[in-house]
Design a protein around this nucleic acid. Structure first.
Lengths: 220, 220
DNA sequence: ACATTTCTCTAGCGGTCGCTACAAAAATGA
DNA sequence: TCATTTTTGTAGCGACCGCTAGAGAAATGT
């Protein structure tokens, strides 16, 4: 329950009649002195590197370069900021998995591409190593936060499983394979690779690891 | 630097001349009112479940059922207690990996056994799920603690690698395989399985996952 | 008996946590 | 100009953090 997190367009405006795509109809009071998007990106990087608990609000205000009241007014409390961070992280950095599943013609190719792209993403020096969803809320004393990321991890595995089952349905994979176990194996690989990246493994090392993992994927 | 952590036998006694294995020569002052070993076990379980940061000293004094001064007198500060917890965890719960590497006749059999036993251990309802070394110090604001567990994880992978290289040396494995990548793959599997266990996977699910991982291990 | 040693209990230290009240500042509408 | 609305900076709230001083309790040595 918080004062209200202001967004670009109030819900009332979007219901108005002839408002032909007015992007920002000049809000009344003092304008915000920072860019919400770039501040959010700084928050993403901070939570990504240090996790939910270990990133204090004063850490956030420092890296986002805004005062605490501005943070609370723009993003709500720490937990709702983190939820928005996780959502936006998925869009900006975590979409490669869904894209691989959607664009590749077989589950095998999709998982192979996922692992390959994970190797690159998790070791990209442009941002913290590994996956935020895997590491940012382990050992979290706020159970909802921990559970939220857990749900995302399990949803990713479920998505892989669905893709495998689709291949079984079309005959691209034999009907006797264990789709759930195969999906879990892929999920464990990705999570293990994320941990390895945090522990110092290079992109090449992760790629070699992924190749081993894909070597015995069921053939058609 | 702390007041000094009292152990069973003072270092001076062990240097004495004719002291023929005197186990506990009746210490001078008021005796301790709790059993150090069982208190340590409680601390292991607490850190295992919640991690280093999320387990507060007052959490510890509650589950160990001792006062704060007793804790500090018996174990030093929070960080040195955690170090002892990690050491003892390795002895009581993490020794299956070293045993598999030492007792099995091939690296392949050793890793297969490691994964099989990890599936059982990580889902044992008698204690928290997953591996303390993997999860208890992620996103830790005390860098030495995080680095300490990172070192243990990488040491485990190095041990697997050595075992693989030994098999290559004896001809049990072909000389052209990438021992480092194969070891990293095994390490990632174990870490991924630990994460899966935390996320609710059952022993059977982890075993199925491990079987997939071992299916394409290099043959002789 | 009594001094000595060691542990336990109560109480609380300084510091940081997430969060917010309040007033000054900067925009708009009249 | 001036009332209204919203954001900003300061300053600090109560709660918890890791940790410890100090006094009393329970053992041993003489």
């Amino acid at each position: 329950m918080h004062p209200m997190v202001s967004n670009k367009v109030s819900s009332k405006e979007s219901e108005e009649t002839g408002a032909k795509a007015r992007p920002a109809a000049k809000p009344r009071g003092r304008p915000r002195s920072f860019d919400r998007e770039t501040a959010l990106e700084k928050a993403i990087l901070a939570f990504w590197e240090h996790g939910y608990e270990a990133t204090s609000v004063s850490d956030l205000t420092r890296v986002m370069d805004i005062g605490a009241p501005s943070l609370y007014s723009a993003f709500g409390d720490k937990q709702s900021l983190f939820e928005e961070v996780v959502r936006e992280y998925g869009v900006r950095y975590g979409s490669f998995a869904d894209r691989a599943l959607a664009e590749e013609s077989t589950a095998c190719a999709a998982v192979a591409r996922m692992l390959r792209e994970a190797a690159a993403e998790y070791t990209d020096p442009a941002h913290p190593y590994g996956c935020l969803v895997v590491h940012a809320a382990t050992n979290c004393s706020t159970p909802e936060v921990e559970q939220s990321l857990r749900g995302r991890r399990n949803a990713s595995i479920a998505a892989i499983r669905s893709r495998i089952e689709a291949d079984i349905a079309t005959g691209a994979l034999p009907p006797d394979i264990d789709a759930a176990a195969l999906a879990r194996h892929a999920g464990a690989m990705i999570q293990g690779m994320s941990q390895q990246a945090r522990d110092g493994a290079s992109r090449e090392e992760l790629e070699a690891l992924a190749e081993i993992a894909m070597a015995n994927w069921p053939r058609t």
